[in-house]
Nucleic acid binder design. Sequence first.
DNA 1: CGGGTTTGACCGGCGC
DNA 2: GCGCCGGTCAAACCCG
Length: 222
Amino acid sequence: MEGFSSKFSSSTNSGSASSSSATNIFPFDGDYYDHQHHHQNDGQLINGMMTTMMMGQQERLNQRQRLHLVPVVRSQPLLIDDKSNNNNDYLSCNYNHHHHQNDDDKSNDGAELKKKKKGIAALEKKIRKHRYAFQTRSQVDILDDGYRWRKYGQKAVKNNKFPRSYYRCTHQGCNVKKQVQRLTKDEGVVVTTYEGIHSHPIEKSTDNFEHILTQLQIYTSL
DNA sequence: CGGGTTTGACCGGCGC
DNA sequence: GCGCCGGTCAAACCCG
Ligand SMILES: [Zn+2]
């Protein structure tokens, strides 16, 4: 996966024409995240997630340049670092296996099951993965990143005008989550935060450039 | 019926 | 403890 970071940074030059932060081109433009300073597992994590959106990125850049379209995306993807960095070693652990409850599990009252679930949740919390956020200027909240998501919650967050939505990847056994919320400060911007690594390939192609464009606010000038 | 969303309840962590 | 807050569950609901 070493091709990833280089490929990614290679798109830097095409973008940063101006220093104005508001006119960064497309997500993932410019510096992203220094892989060197992080655990290798983190790199994989990123790749696992980012390939979803990075597929055909260069292609799209070229295409955009041809079209002279400039999607306005304020996007310095943020690494939301967890305080417990020393747990990185566990990131590669595979917790995606199904928790098949054995048939011999006769203590089958809901309480037991719930307890079990709690334990697992606690465990997974302990080894919480890094999260990565992207800011995208867009009218629609749900940006198609090629994976299928099921919404499992929505919450009003303090000091925020807009609610935050919680999604989980619907693929069986895949535990990736994401949160989506619109900024109070600039309600044209949607922040998407990913957590975890997909245990499966992407479900559908993301190289539909037209479709991506429809989700973004764009300038047709220049 | 099989998948998704909605939405209030619930829960654990944290600061006081 | 207690109350707040963010995150999750799950029953109800919706829809092709
Ligand atoms: Zn997934």
